[in-house]
Design a protein around this nucleic acid. Structure first.
Lengths: 193, 193, 193, 193
DNA sequence: ACGTAATCGAGACGGTACGTCGGGTCTTAGA
DNA sequence: TCTAAGACCCGACGTACCGTCTCGATTACGT
């Protein structure tokens, strides 16, 4: 029992700086390629580069931290009695989070950074992609228990399709995801005939 | 009217250099992040930087050129009498092209580069993504004519799902796409009940 | 009236730390430029940077303090009855102090630091260079009183020559100063014809 | 005979940049340590840092190059028929070159840099100190041949004394060297009785 | 065959950002 | 009140690539 903190000596990490850095990074990337460099972040946050390097290995990790927080907070997987409704609700919430262009910019930048740095890619998977996936799979297994799940596709494929469409739309096209998309997708995946 | 080339004077473009550059770029990117820079490509190809800048605006365009050739050549949309079989064949061919790790590396790098350069993104869409999409939509419209198409989803969503799964698997996970995946996906999209 | 020390409150300055710092600084610089930084001194002395900054304005002042002590303690200007002998004795003692390479390293570092910091240069002059000069001028004025001084050069020039040769040899050449040098120099400066 | 230049390929070194860098470095150091950094030199010369690093290993080498040129150009060792006059002329010329505060600043900076970088110290000796020394020794050996040289001191000590006084005055005191100093020094070193 | 023109490798140029080092200040916990 | 630890802002370091600009050396076409 207990979570005794070791209480180290010396000055403590500045929460103010941490927030300033997360915000600056997000804002810069939201402004479409606007000076999104470590130096740019430091300048906008009013912080030294050293302070950034002390806590984050790459600028991608900064985005990762701020995006992971947001997603966790704003997408629930509450039980709505049917697979179709659960799925529809999950998609609607997700698409809402993705509405602001800044969020999409940040996610696209993060995905791009991750492709160029294998270690960041691992962290991105573990701390973001897998968690989002786990959220969805929770809905799927609830349906399975309920006997509500169409037999056609394995749950892993469901996740590949849902997140595949979401990311493909962000990365490869300009088209926003809307309620109609949520309806078609949920319809296809939850339909029994 | 005619397609006469103007036949300019002076020394002609060196096909040897062109090939050396395409190969060097592809190889460097295949070796996972190994010095994939214009200078690196020039050095490995035994070519001057100027020669690269003369013919390609960005290093992403080099990848684009070499990948577009390959895909066009190796994925057919021949008529196999049923939507299910056409789709299945398309997926099998595509997954085969994607088998070599070098190809996947190149595609991931290209997608990453495109996220950071809006003009390259446009060219990437027009010269690669839209063409792949058009190939698939050919199969879908053939099914429509044939009356073979399940009514559940619009053809655009079919494309979003197919390419969504393909890209999501490449960018976000390690899992290769295999025959089983092709079967499930084709099954889901072509099934009538 | 009295000589009562004010007896300030709180923990008193740690003599242990003071010595550790002086030694660490001297040793680091003796090892030819090895990590001779405030951070390096703090690390080797097992002391915090703050403790150094509290008592010395620059790292040059640390060297200054330890070198001034040594010189004062080890070079006498005792009367040996003739200018020639006094001078010869002064030079021999000085050259002996300068024999260990660590001492020369420290002096060269101190001179270099002083060139880059005008305030340190002032302290260096007052607390070291002028005191060494005063020592020598004591010998010269004793000779003057005795009527033993050759008329050719003013006493200031004598000091310029003596310390000039010493410093030039340290800073600009590799050649150690030895007994022969002491002899020639004393001979030149003390000869009457 | 020969002296064929190798005629390398590629763009040639810009003499304009070279001069701008030498001038900028000299001027910055002349303004008493004002922003005397590689970045400062690059900024003032309107040149990239890379161009500096391509041709000079340290900022000391830049000073070295510009000072060596000046000294070589402005101090002659022409024969004036007597050792006393030759020496006196050498000292007068030297003191004249040293009159502007900027020159003294540059020399002091260079000497300081050299103390902190053993490789620069070697180059400083070879390309500056030893050449100045050789100039003087030329005068001394001419006197020797002429039978004009007082027997008291070896020629090496003459050089140690002359350059010792010059450097000591620059580094350790504020006092400028003037005609009177030249007279006393020449008198002492050239006097026969 | 000769000149004009475009290409090629080489490599220097002005820049931007990198990731690191050290300086000097400030904050915390412990002695 | 001092100490060691350690985080903070700042400025410079030396390096890597960027995209551009000469160079001399090859081609090739059109007189």
């Amino acid at each position: 029992m207990s979570g005794e903190e070791p209480r180290r000596r010396g000055r403590r990490r500045s929460e103010e700086s941490r927030q300033a850095i997360l915000t600056a990074a997000f804002d810069l990337v939201a402004e479409e390629g606007q000076d999104f460099t470590i130096e740019g972040i430091a300048a906008r946050a009013g912080v030294s580069k050293q302070t950034i390097y002390r806590w984050w290995p790459t600028k991608g990790d900064i985005l990762l931290e701020s995006l992971a927080e947001q997603a966790e907070a704003r997408i629930s997987t509450s039980d709505r009695d049917s697979y179709l409704q659960d799925l529809r609700h999950f998609l609607d919430q997700t698409f809402t989070v993705l509405r602001p262009p800044g969020v999409r910019s940040a996610l696209r930048s993060l995905m791009a950074e991750a492709q160029q740095n294998p270690e960041l890619l691992l962290r991105f998977r573990e701390e973001f992609l897998e968690r989002r996936r786990a959220s969805l799979l929770q809905i799927v297994s609830r349906a399975e228990v309920r006997g509500d799940l169409p037999p056609r596709v394995r749950s892993e494929l469901v996740a590949d399709i849902v997140f595949g469409v979401i990311w493909y739309r962000m990365l490869a096209t300009d088209r926003l995801l809307d309620g109609a998309d949520a309806g078609s997708l949920a319809g296809l995946l939850a339909s029994h005939e």
